[in-house]
C-alpha cells in the first residue's frame, strides 16, 4: 500500500528489458550472494570451533568462569538494538521520511560503534586476566571467532558512516534507497552471526 503505482522505471527493480532474473535489483542480489560467501567464511570458523570442542572438550571452562557474561549480554542487547534502528531507517527510507531516515541511521552508527567499544573493553580485561589467544584452544577459538565478528562490525560501521553521510546529503529517496537496503542486509547478517556466536561461545 505504501508504494503506489508508477514505479515501473524504478531503479530498485531488476534491469528492464532483460530476461527475468532473481526478481530484484543487482545490488541487492549481489549483497545476498556475497552474504553466501560470508556464511562459508563463518562456517570455517564456527565449524572449527564445534569440531575442536568435540575433539578436546577439556580445553573449555564452564560458562561464566572466564568470560564476562553480564558485559557481553549488554553488548548483545546493543547489537539487537542497532538492528532495530537499522530496519527502522530502512522503513523510513521506503516511506521517504528523510529526517527519520537520518536519525535512525545515526543511531545505528553510534550503537554499532559502542558495540565495538565494549568488545575492546572486554578484550583488555580478559588479556589482563591472562586469557590470551595462545592460552589454548579456548582462547584460540574465542578470539578468532569474536575477533572476526568484531572486524565485520567495524567494517559495517565504516560503511554505515558513509551511507549516513549520503543520507544527510539527501541521496536516498523513496524511489531509490538501494544503499540503505543493501547496507541493512549486511548489518542484520552481522547481527545474526552474533546471535549464534553469543550462544555457542559464551553460554555453552
Amino acid at each position: 500500500m505504501a508504494h503506489a503505482a508508477a514505479m515501473h522505471e524504478d531503479v530498485m527493480l531488476p534491469p528492464p528489458s532483460r530476461e527475468a532474473g532473481a526478481g530484484v535489483y543487482n545490488e541487492k542480489l549481489g549483497m545476498w550472494i556475497f552474504l553466501g560467501s560470508e556464511v562459508m567464511f563463518f562456517t570455517a570458523l564456527i565449524g572449527t570451533y564445534v569440531i575442536l570442542r568435540f575433539a578436546h572438550p577439556s580445553s573449555w571452562k564452564a560458562p561464566g568462569q572466564v568470560l564476562n557474561i553480564p558485559v557481553t549480554a549488554i553488548n548483545t542487547f546493543l547489537l539487537i538494538c542497532s538492528s532495530v534502528t537499522m530496519v527502522k531507517a530502512f522503513a523510513a527510507a521506503q516511506d521517504g521520511l528523510q529526517r527519520q531516515l537520518r536519525l535512525w541511521l545515526l543511531a545505528t552508527v553510534i550503537i554499532g560503534a559502542s558495540f565495538v567499544g565494549v568488545q575492546v573493553y572486554e578484550y583488555t580485561h580478559l588479556i589482563e586476566k591472562g586469557f590470551v589467544p595462545s592460552e589454548g584452544l579456548y582462547g584460540s577459538t574465542f578470539y578468532t571467532m569474536t575477533g572476526f565478528h568484531g572486524f565485520h562490525v567495524t567494517m559495517g560501521v565504516i560503511c554505515m558512516m558513509f551511507v549516513t553521510a549520503r543520507a544527510f546529503q539527501g541521496k536516498y529517496t523513496k524511489d531509490d534507497h538501494r544503499g540503505v537496503e543493501v547496507i541493512g542486509l549486511y548489518w542484520h547478517f552481522v547481527d545474526l552471526v552474533w546471535i549464534i556466536l553469543f550462544t555457542i561461545v559464551y553460554l555453552i
Binding site: M1, A2, M7, D10, L13, A20, G23
Partner: peptide, 10 residues
C-alpha cells in the same frame, strides 16, 4: 509478477 515491488505494510 517479476518486476513488481511487493506491497506490504511494514
Amino acid at each position: 509478477s517479476p518486476g513488481t515491488r511487493p506491497t506490504h505494510a511494514h
